[in-house]
């Protein structure tokens, strides 16, 4: 126990300041009114669904929880059930074998809800594109609020994307 406590004290606090929002990540104007956004701010429940990714994006989503990015300190947490979620984080091109599960997860979320497409595959279909097995980008299946490109996007880019999706000052969804 002494070693454990010593290590905690020695390493200290590694958490870094979160990035600013990035309007360039906004693919469509947001559907939520300012007052609803106020509900999310400070407490956001995120449900992640891998709709067919290579698992690269998952690695970076995991890294959001490490002490450097410390996503929970920003008031965001990953939840196990879509019924508890405000925001759906979708990675991968949407594999046809995952289409139903993705749609059901989205349907199970209470409104109002946000969708963030993650990675080059989520944004455009990426290197896998559309085929007999892949529906391509997430927007081909669900209405997407914000897309975060990158292969995989860095934790900072992911944080920016999530913050952009929930930030106030967003307009109505067109």
């Amino acid at each position: 126990m002494y070693q454990l406590l010593k290590q905690i004290v020695k390493v200290g606090i590694k958490t870094e300041a979160p990035p600013d929002t990035d309007d360039s990540l906004r693919v469509v104007s947001q559907r939520l009114k300012q007052e609803i956004l106020g509900v999310f701010e400070g407490s956001l429940a995120i449900r992640h669904v891998d709709a067919g990714s290579c698992n690269g994006c998952e690695l970076e989503i995991h890294m959001l929880s490490n002490p450097y990015y410390n996503i929970e300190a920003l008031g965001m947490k990953f939840v196990a059930s879509p019924r508890h979620a405000d925001l759906l984080l979708v990675t991968g091109p949407v594999a046809r074998n995952m289409e139903v599960a993705l749609q059901r997860t989205y349907d199970a979320m209470p409104g109002p809800k946000l969708v963030v497409a993650v990675g080059d595959c989520g944004c455009t279909g990426g290197i896998f594109g559309e085929s007999y097995a892949s529906r391509g980008r997430v927007a081909n299946v669900l209405a997407v609020d914000v897309s975060v490109p990158g292969c995989p996007p860095t934790p900072v880019a992911l944080l920016q994307g999530i913050l952009t999706a929930i930030s106030s000052g967003a307009g109505e969804r067109s």
Binding site: D50, G92, F128, S131, Y132, A133
Partner: peptide, 11 residues
């Protein structure tokens, strides 16, 4: 398994 099948051999 097979849920993330995205047709890599074809691609």
């Amino acid at each position: 398994l097979g849920y993330t099948h995205k047709g890599i051999d074809k691609r």
